[in-house]
Amino acid sequence: MDPLMEWSAALATEHHLIDEQHQQMITLLNDLHSTLTHTGRSDELPRQLEALCDFTMEHFATEERLMAHLNYPHLERHRIQHDRLAAQAQELNHRCQCGQQLLCSDVTEQLREWMLDHFLGEDRELGLFLQRQDRSE
């Protein structure tokens, strides 16, 4: 069984903690997708979705602390994107938890696209900034 999303060097920010957390987010997404499409264990889905949402919020907080500490010039723009994505994730989690939305592969695909867009966009830019910071120290 192929994973929905795989870690690759193209996704790397070259910051150990951020990349480690991104890899964990991918693992959680793949676990959710695998349960959804292959195991038939629908009783596991709410817990897995909540774990992914919770870890994503933790990751956002980690990035924001790091950006604030280093006076990242695009902190506010990045934070706004985190806030928007967090609200969407929490709404999705709420709708799925109370049965208003069926958790299906369309949802995991949407989450995958969001991760790719964010990792390759805002987080790539943050990674380049962090690399410049490391070289200047």
Rank of each mutant, 00 (worst) to 15 (best):
M1H: 12
M1Y: 14
D2L: 09
E6S: 09
A9T: 14
A10T: 12
L11K: 02
A12E: 10
A12D: 07
T13R: 02
H16I: 13
E20P: 07
E20D: 11
Q21C: 03
H22F: 07
Q23T: 01
M25Q: 15
N30W: 12
H33D: 07
L36I: 05
T39Y: 05
T39V: 03
G40H: 02
G40E: 03
S42D: 13
P46R: 12
P46S: 11
R47S: 15
Q48V: 01
Q48S: 08
Q48D: 13
Q48L: 03
E50C: 12
F55S: 04
T56E: 11
E58D: 13
E58W: 11
F60N: 02
F60V: 05
F60W: 02
A61G: 11
T62A: 02
T62S: 14
E64I: 15
L66K: 05
A68P: 00
H69V: 10
L70N: 14
P73H: 04
H74K: 14
H74V: 07
I80T: 14
Q81W: 10
D83A: 15
R84G: 06
A87E: 12
Q88M: 11
Q90P: 01
E91D: 10
N93G: 12
H94I: 00
R95P: 08
R95F: 00
Q97H: 13
Q97S: 13
G99N: 04
Q100L: 04
Q100S: 01
Q100E: 03
L103C: 02
C104T: 10
C104L: 05
D106Q: 11
T108R: 02
T108A: 01
Q110C: 00
R112F: 01
F119G: 04
G121I: 00
D123W: 01
R124D: 06
G127S: 07
G127F: 01
L128K: 10
R135N: 08
S136N: 15
E137T: 15
